[in-house]
């Protein structure tokens, strides 16, 4: 790691930058703080503090529909993450390592399309595809497939970034030291890109847990996920239960973010 020795900032510049930092921080986190604090309020009114209570958490756990949505979210997130991670990593490897296969250029460009095109477009495309082909009924399977479809791109991007700064001589060295192709991958390539793979997987998990637009298009009447359910709740009536659910989701996101930071830290240490 290199240390940058910039010019010494003048004190007032430094102060303004610090104040700006705090503003950004407040802008981002004050709303979250409000939600978290009011999730513990005993009042039935969303904006009024009614003393500390776990009443809304209790109600949340008792809400069968909500718990179902949560379960769906988790199952879909796990499956789509695992499958998208494997496929996305494979795609990244083939793009990075094998430069001469037919259609590589097109694949390279198209792989990132799901990231670029608006969610609604992607959602409509997927819905049309599911309904026109009729191969999969709308429900948990279609949601999972849709999530895999957009997650592959994200995983591939993260893994490719990692591969890009992996010395290709590593694999040469493994081959030179009697490792077959599989062993070279298993013992050298995979451990070296693992931080990228895990980072990509965490990103996929978060995106899957978060998705509203695409899921609400392809979910059909049967299944729904937590964010889509919450979105529906808000449209009907706003109760402090929303605060409890939101806090719960924030907690999950925090764990995931901390996890991904941890992997990043580790990958930096390895270089």
């Amino acid at each position: 790691m290199t240390l940058h020795q910039g010019a010494v900032a003048r004190p007032w510049v430094e102060r303004i930058l610090a104040i700006n930092g705090w503003f950004v921080f407040a802008f981002l986190y004050l709303p979250i703080m409000v939600v978290v604090v009011f999730s513990f309020s005993g009042s039935s009114n969303v904006g009024i503090w009614g003393g500390f209570s776990l009443r809304w958490y209790d109600q949340m756990l008792g809400n069968q529909q909500l718990m179902n949505a949560l379960k769906n979210s988790i199952v879909i997130a796990l499956w789509s993450t695992v499958i998208a991670t494997v496929l996305g990593t494979a795609a990244a490897l083939s793009l990075d390592r094998y430069r001469r296969w037919v259609g590589r250029g097109a694949f390279d460009g198209l792989l990132y399309l799901p990231i670029i095109i608006p969610d609604v477009t992607m959602a409509v495309m997927l819905l049309l595809w599911f309904t026109q082909t009729g191969l999969v009924p709308l429900g948990r399977t279609s949601i999972t497939l849709a999530h895999i479809a957009f997650n592959i791109s994200f995983v591939a991007i993260v893994v490719r970034a990692r591969l890009a700064h992996m010395d290709p001589e590593m694999e040469d060295a493994a081959a030179d030291l009697y490792a077959g192709r599989w062993q070279a991958f298993r013992r050298v390539t995979l451990p070296l890109i693992l931080p990228g793979v895990l980072g990509g997987a965490l990103l996929a998990l978060t995106l899957s847990l978060d998705d509203v637009v695409i899921t609400s298009f392809v979910q059909g009447p049967g299944a729904t996920t937590l964010p889509v359910y919450v979105f529906g709740l808000i449209r009907r009536s706003v109760t402090p239960e929303i605060n409890a659910v939101s806090t719960f989701m924030i907690a999950i996101s925090m764990v995931l973010v901390l996890g991904s930071l941890g992997f990043q830290r580790r990958s930096e240490k390895d270089d």
Binding site: E169, M170, L177, Y178, R187
Partner: peptide, 26 residues
């Protein structure tokens, strides 16, 4: 044949001992 690479190409995730033993393990 074995090679000593220009950039050494040591495996960063293995210690000295494991690097040296890699070929024998394979």
């Amino acid at each position: 044949v074995n090679t000593v690479f220009q950039s050494y190409a040591l495996f960063p995730h293995m210690n000295v001992e494991d690097n040296i033993g890699f070929g024998l393990r394979m």
